[in-house]
């Protein structure tokens, strides 16, 4: 997402995310001052970082954390754009046990640099090693996880046009 200023680029990046999230929650994205280019990644989170309870049966809870960096838009002098450089999308069951978590943390201390999926205790997986495994996924859009939550995991959408909204915001993100 690009903007004439770095702040505009961040806004252009966050707005579709907030719109996508509005399909399942009224919780707001929090940013900790990440509007300027920096060597260290910036982060945003849904709500205050605690899992946000969603409507549905069972009532799952959603956590979203994204890392991003602000860089010059290639070939467009004077423009800035935002690159997503890491994420955590997780769904918990009503007892607070993680069901599934999509991770991408190439800049941390983990040896696992590729995007992957964890099946947590809430998934009730019977194969012991699978609960610690890093299942490779390729890069996963937040919209895909929200769509999974609504279409397959019983989460009630908060807006009737959720399908179109998620399609639109994911398409906009993938253009970058």
């Amino acid at each position: 997402m690009a903007g004439r200023t770095s702040a505009q680029a961040v806004q252009a990046f966050v707005d579709p995310l907030q719109l996508a999230l509005s399909c399942v929650t009224d919780a707001v994205v929090n940013i900790g001052g990440g509007y300027h280019p920096a060597d260290e990644p910036h982060a945003l989170t849904l709500g205050d970082g605690s899992p946000v309870r969603l409507r549905g049966d069972p009532p799952l809870a959603l956590s979203v954390i994204l890392h991003y960096r602000i860089v010059r838009a290639t070939g467009q002098r004077g423009l800035w754009r935002v690159q997503a450089i890491g994420y955590l999308y997780a769904l918990e069951d009503p007892d607070g046990r993680e069901v599934l978590a999509y991770h991408w943390h190439p800049l941390g201390h983990s040896a696992v640099l590729h995007p992957h999926l964890h099946l947590g205790a809430g998934a009730r997986v019977g194969f012991p090693r699978l609960s610690d495994a890093h299942l490779p996924t390729g890069w996963v859009a937040l919209e895909a996880v929200l769509r999974l939550a609504v279409a397959d995991l019983g989460v009630e959408p908060r807006r009737a046009d959720w399908d179109e909204v998620l399609r639109r915001t994911q398409k906009a993100l993938e253009q970058w």
Partner: peptide, 22 residues
């Protein structure tokens, strides 16, 4: 200091580590 490096992928550690920029 690397005190979580034995297993930084533990869910509880990763949740907090991803919030480090804050």
């Amino acid at each position: 200091a690397g005190e979580f490096d034995d297993n930084p992928d533990r869910p509880e550690v990763m949740r907090v580590a991803m919030l480090l920029p804050f």
